[in-house]
């Protein structure tokens, strides 16, 4: 998160957090399946602590319509039983929630030390060149969103790129274009996955 959106210490596009209010968006309500999932999740916490389920509720809403609009946050607030401001407070803090529409595949490129030591920045540059967008942007046809993130916790398999909830490990810069083509053709099935769970 950034606390000084107007201070010019990095290119403006560097900032992922937006100060502007999220879009109102279409009227939102959980699908019956998501409502059932939410109701099951709330049971994990004490009855007077429904707010604990807020992250789960937001993941559900984001999964349902891609990003979080005002209408979705209001719906979550109603479900949890808190104010809309409390929901936005949480949404604006965590990096995995989007208040603007994102592409079909969100590419999270790890940029922290271990990945950077073996060329993560080159990977980001290649991705930018191949997609014709800067980090933090979504390409025009809404397929890819490129985001730089901090340590993903798989430093021995650097550079790591997370694609939605899947993983691509050891993505060398020269394989970036192939990686994008595979992703377009075969979707998340083309990812290397976490090498630890190969046999599943």
């Amino acid at each position: 998160m950034s606390f000084h959106p107007r201070m010019d210490y990095a290119p403006a596009k560097f900032h992922q957090s937006a100060r502007a209010l999220p879009e109102e968006g279409e009227p939102f309500a959980y699908t019956p399946e998501n409502q059932a999932k939410f109701d099951a999740c709330v049971k994990r916490y004490p009855p007077d602590q429904r707010k604990s389920a807020i992250l789960y509720a937001l993941y559900l809403a984001q999964g349902q319509q891609g990003s979080l609009t005002r209408a979705a946050m209001d719906h979550v607030a109603t479900q949890i039983g808190c104010t809309a401001a409390e929901v936005e407070d949480v949404v604006s803090y965590y990096t995995m929630f989007f208040t603007k529409p994102v592409g079909k595949y969100v590419l999270y490129v790890c940029r922290t030390l271990s990945c950077a030591l073996v060329g993560a920045e080159r990977v980001t540059e290649e991705l930018e060149a191949a997609l014709g967008i800067q980090r933090g942007e979504t390409d025009p046809d809404g397929t890819f969103t490129l985001v730089e993130v901090e340590c993903l916790g798989a430093c021995d398999r650097a550079p790591v790129v997370m694609v939605n909830d899947g993983w691509q490990e050891r993505l060398s810069p020269d394989r970036v274009r192939q990686f994008l083509d595979d992703l377009r053709a075969r979707g998340e099935a083309s990812l290397s996955g976490c090498h630890l769970c190969k046999e599943r």
Partner: peptide, 27 residues
């Protein structure tokens, strides 16, 4: 035993921040 999924915050690794996050607030 329940698994609670965070949403991308290094600070949630600090024990009281983790508790705050579990309670549904900012970490």
């Amino acid at each position: 035993v329940y698994v609670h999924r965070g949403a991308g915050a290094y600070e949630a690794g600090e024990e009281t921040a983790l508790i705050e996050s579990l309670e549904g607030k900012r970490a």
